[in-house]
Amino acid sequence: MVRARMRSGADWHDVIIHNMSSRGLLATSKVDCRPGTVIELRRIHHIIVGRVVWEKDQYFGIRTQDKLDIDAIVEAKPPAFKPGTAGAEMGEDRRGANRRITAVSVTEREARSRRFSAAFQFVILIGVAAIAALFLAERMGQVLSRPLAAVSAELGGGAS
């Protein structure tokens, strides 16, 4: 059994990998994984992308897009030190002690990016709607000006 993290959609969940082959695996999770769902599994620095091909209760089978290095995934070990530990504070962190990436900053950047993309999409939508409204107003002016010009000419208001 190997523990990993699974992303299905935008959410991350814990998963246990029970069995692996070169092109697939058997896993369990508390989250339903419907057949056809594309998921991403992360085990330390290994990333596995695949599609759920079957599910029953908590168990599900995944067909991976790439061949799996089973030994490397099973034997994967976390890094020797993490940013913010004693080793990093002593200057061993190659990025520098002042630059630390935390889960909060990543989450905050993701939320900021989502807000920006929503605002950008809204501005584009408003621009397209304004251009369509201007085109429609010009076309309606052309269509309505013909009968009004004919009525004006009949009433003696001008030449047509």
Rank of each mutant, 00 (worst) to 15 (best):
N98R: 14
M6F: 02
K56M: 10
G157L: 11
G158I: 00
G96T: 05
G158Q: 07
S117D: 12
I62H: 01
K30A: 13
E92T: 09
L25I: 04
T28D: 09
V143T: 12
V123Q: 11
A97P: 00
F122T: 15
K82H: 13
F81M: 08
P147N: 07
V52S: 03
V123H: 08
V151A: 15
S117I: 07
K77C: 11
R109K: 12
D66Y: 00
R100I: 12
F122L: 15
S21M: 07
Q65K: 05
R42L: 04
L25D: 01
G127H: 12
H18G: 14
Q142D: 09
K56Y: 06
V123T: 13
V104L: 13
A27E: 01
I48L: 04
V38F: 00
V151I: 15
Y59C: 05
I131F: 14
A88E: 06
C33E: 06
G50P: 00
A129G: 13
R100C: 13
T85G: 08
R5A: 10
S29Y: 01
R95E: 13
E154K: 11
G127E: 15
V31P: 00
T85W: 00
R51W: 01
G61S: 08
A133M: 10
K67S: 14
Y59D: 05
A97F: 07
F81A: 11
I126N: 14
D71W: 00
A4G: 08
V52M: 01
I39L: 01
S22K: 11
W54F: 05
D93V: 06
A137I: 10
G36M: 01
A153P: 02
V123R: 14
K67Q: 12
R100A: 12
T107N: 15
A4D: 02
I131T: 13
G156N: 05
W12G: 01
E89K: 09
Q65I: 03
G127R: 08
G36H: 03
R42T: 05
K56T: 15
Y59T: 08
S105T: 12
L144E: 11
V38E: 02
Q58C: 10
V31C: 06
A10K: 05
M1E: 08
I47K: 09
R23Y: 08
A4K: 00
G91M: 05
I44D: 00
T102Q: 03
R109F: 08
A153H: 11
R95T: 09
V2Y: 00
G91R: 03
P83V: 04
D66G: 04
W54E: 04
I126Q: 15
D14T: 03
N98W: 09
T28P: 03
S29T: 03
V49M: 06
G87F: 06
W54I: 00
M140L: 11
